[in-house]
Design a protein around this nucleic acid. Structure first.
Lengths: 233, 233, 233, 233
DNA sequence: AATGAATGAGCATTCATTCAT
DNA sequence: AATGAATGAATGCTCATTCAT
C-alpha cells in the first residue's frame, strides 16, 4: 500500500484543494498542483478521484480520533464546552472553507455509496465522542441521568443545523443564538442541579496538525505548468 | 415576462429534473426533456442554467407562502405540530429526492451569490412562518412568554440538522429521536403549563400542488441511463 | 419593396452594429437593437443576415456616388489631394471602426459570391472616381499624358495597403510615409512639370451624412430587453 | 515544451485547415481531422484555438526567416525581383487559399491583441527582409542613395494592396498592372542609372517546405461538406 | 513509482432562421 | 408590417481516466 508519507502528502493536497476549490470544482489537476507529483501519480495511488476523496474522509476521521483521545483526561463539562465551542464558534476563513467543502461532500452522499459509508463512519465517531462526554458526565455526577444517545443526536442536529445555516446563508449570528439556545434549553435539562457549565472552555478542542498549511504556498493557476501549453515557441 | 403557463411548465420540469438528477448532474437537456420544448427555449426564457435554478427557488418560495397562508386560521399549536410533522416525518421518495437536491443547492450557496440570496430569502420566509406561529401562540395563551426569534432559530437548526443527517446518512431513525428531543427539551420550555401539545397533527401542512407529478412519465433518451443518479457525480 | 425610411433605419443600424461589433460578431440581434423594430422584422425585409450586409455595401456605394458627384466641379488637383487625404489621413475612432469592419467584410469576399460582387461594384466606383480625376487632370493640363487606369490601380493598391497596415497593425505612422511616397514617386511621374500639387486640400471629401450618428445612443447590452429573460419573478 | 514533431504536425494541420476552411470556419475539429490525434490533444498542447493560430503565425515567421536566410548570398537586384515575383505573381490555388485565410486573420487583428502582436512581428520581419535588400543594393551600387525604410513601406503597401484586391475581388489582372507600376514609378526612382532590373528572377523565392502537402488527403467526415467554403461565413 | 501524452464523453450557450398569429 | 416564441445545429473547452514507457 501507499507509503504513509506519500499518503500524507496527497491527503493534505486533497484537503487543500477541496477547501480552495470546493468539491464540485475539485479536479485531479488541482490536487496534483498541490503536490510535487503528477496527476497520473494520483491515479497510480488511488483508483479514482472519488476514492481520493473517500480516503480523505477516512484520514480526517483518524485525525479526529487522535484529537479526541488527547482530551479524554479532561472533566466532562470542560470537554463539553470545548466541543460546543469547536462546533459553534465563528470559524476563521480556513475553517469556513473546510466546512463549506465538507457540506458539498455530504450533499453528494445520497448519490454516492462510498461517501455515504465514510460519512456514516465519521458520524459514528462524532456521536461517540459526544456520548462519551455525556456518559462520563453522568458518572462524574455533573449530569443527571438521561439518555446520552438521544441527547447526543439532538445536540448534533442542532449543531449541524447551525453550521449549515451559517455556512450557506453567511449568517454567523445564528451560531450564537443557537449556542445559547442549546445551553438554555437542552443542556439545562441534563445538567445536575448542583453542577454548572463553565462559561468558557478551559482548553480548545485541538486542530488537526497534519493539515496545518504553515506556508500558504499559493498555487499558480494562470498558466498551468503541468502541461506543455506553449504559447510562444 | 414569460407567460405564466410556460413558466409553470419550465419550473416543474426544472424541479423534476433537479429531483431526479441532483444539482451537479442537472443539465439543460435534462430539464428540456421534461418539457415539450427544446433546450434552446429554456435559454430564450432564462439567461442561464443558473438563472433557471435561481428562479425555481423563487417559485418554491411563492408556493410555500401560499401554503402557509392557507393554514393561518388554524390554532397555533396545531400549526406547530403540522410544521414539525412536515419537517420531521419520514419523507416519501419524492420528498427525499427533493430534500437531497435542495441540500446540494444549499451547498453551492457559499460559491454562488445568486443562490445564496435566494436561499436567504427562503430562510426568511421559513423563519417568519415559524415566528408567526410562536407569536400567535403567545397571544392565544398556549405559549408562555419567550423570544420567538431565538426559539425559531434553534428549532430550525435542529430541524435542518435532522434533515441533513437523515438525507446524507440515510438514517430515518434520527428524525424521530430529534422530533422527540425538540418537543421534550425545547418546546417544553415555551409551552404554557396549562396547554398541551397535540400528540398528532389535525391537518397536514399542504404540499405544493403545482409540482405534483401526477403521471410519472419516465423520460427516455437513447443512451440515457434513466436510473436516478447512483454512483458519483 | 421596403419603404426607404425603413431601409435607411435598418441600414444605419447595420452600419452602426457593424462598426461596433465587427463583422464576425455581428448578430441579427445587435442590428435589431439599434432599431426600433424586432429581430424578426429584419428577416421580413431581408432574406438573411448576409443580404442585410450586402445591401449595406450597396447603400454605401450610393452614398459614395452622391458624394463624388458633389465634388465634380472642383479642379482635378484639388480633388486628387482631397481624395488622398480622405484615404490616407489618420482616421478618427468612428472611421477606424468602419475600416476595420469593412476589412473583415472584404476578407469574407473570397468565400462569398454576393459580397464579392458588391465589393467589385464598389471597387469599380472607387476606381472610376480616381480615373475621372486623372482624366480631368490631363484635360486640364495639370497631368502629363499617362494611363489613368494603370495609375489608378497602382494608387488604390498603395492606399489600400496603407490602410490595411494601419488598421491591422495599429500603425498610423505608415499612413504618412506612404502618402509622401505616393506623392514623390507616383504622382511626381504624372504631374505636368508646370503644375504643382497643392500642399493641402482646399476642401474635405464629404462624409456620408446618412450615417452620422449624431446622438451616440449607447445600446444596452447587459440585459437584453428584447427577450423576456426574467431573472426575478 | 511540445515535441517538435508534434508541433510540426499540429501546425501543418492548422495551416491546412485554415487554408481550406478560412479563419471564421476554422474549428478545432477541422484541425484535429488533419492530424492523427484527437481534438483534445490540441487542447493538451495549446490553450485555445486562438493560441493555436497565434502559434501558426509564429511558425510561419520562422519559416520565412529561414527562407530569407537562404537567399542572402544572391545579388540585391536578383533578390528584389524574386521578392516582387513571390508577392505579385499570380498564385496557384494553394497560395491563394493561404492568402485568403491570412487576410481573414489580419482582419481579426484589430479585435485580437495576440494576433496583432504576432502580425506586427511578422510585418517587422517582412519589412526587414526588404530593407536588407535595398541596403545591400545601395552597398552594391545598384541603387542610388535613398531611404530604404520609406521605400520598403511604400512597396509593401503597394504589394499588400495588390494582394487584397486580387484575393477579395478575384482580379488577377491587377497584379501585373501593379507590378509594372511599382517597377516604373517606384523602383525606377531608386535604381542606379547604370543598373538594370532583371526582366525575370533568376531564382524563385523558396516555399516553406514544412507545409508542402504532398499527398492531398481529402478529409472525410460524415456530414462534412468537403468542399472548401463557399457561400457565406 | 511515476509520468507525459492522449482521449472520449459531455455540456452550456449562441444564433440565424422560421412561423403562427 | 411585424413580432414573440421557438428551434436545431454547431462548437470550444474540460476532465477523469488510460496507457506506453
Amino acid at each position: 500500500m501507499t507509503d504513509p508519507d506519500v499518503r500524507d502528502a496527497i491527503m493534505t493536497a486533497t484537503y487543500e484543494a477541496l477547501c480552495e476549490k470546493g468539491y464540485s470544482d475539485l479536479t485531479a489537476q488541482s490536487i496534483a498542483d498541490r503536490t510535487d507529483r503528477s496527476k497520473s501519480a494520483l491515479f497510480y495511488h488511488y483508483d479514482s478521484r472519488e476514492a481520493l476523496v473517500a480516503e480523505l474522509i477516512e484520514y480526517l476521521i483518524e485525525g479526529f480520533e487522535s484529537r479526541v483521545a488527547k482530551t479524554r483526561d479532561q472533566p466532562a463539562l470542560e470537554r463539553l464546552v470545548a466541543f460546543i465551542d469547536w462546533f459553534l464558534s465563528a470559524p476563521d476563513d480556513d475553517e469556513r472553507a473546510f466546512h463549506t467543502a465538507l457540506l458539498e461532500l455530504r450533499a453528494q452522499a445520497p448519490y454516492n455509496d462510498v461517501f455515504r459509508e465514510r460519512l456514516r463512519e465519521s458520524d459514528a465517531h462524532l456521536r461517540h465522542a459526544l456520548v462519551e462526554i455525556l456518559e462520563d458526565g453522568i458518572e462524574e455526577g455533573v449530569f443527571c441521568d438521561h439518555d446520552p444517545d438521544a441527547i447526543a443526536t439532538l445536540l448534533l442536529a442542532a449543531f449541524d443545523g447551525a453550521r449549515i445555516r451559517q455556512v450557506t446563508l453567511d449568517r454567523n449570528e445564528y451560531l450564537e443564538t443557537i449556542s445559547t439556545g442549546v445551553v438554555d434549553h437542552i443542556l439545562a435539562d441534563v445538567l445536575d442541579p448542583d453542577a454548572e457549565l463553565p462559561a468558557e472552555a478551559s482548553f480548545a478542542f485541538p486542530r488537526d496538525e497534519r493539515l496545518r498549511n504553515d506556508e500558504k504556498s499559493p498555487v499558480e493557476t494562470a498558466t498551468d505548468d503541468a502541461e506543455p501549453r506553449d504559447t510562444d515557441e
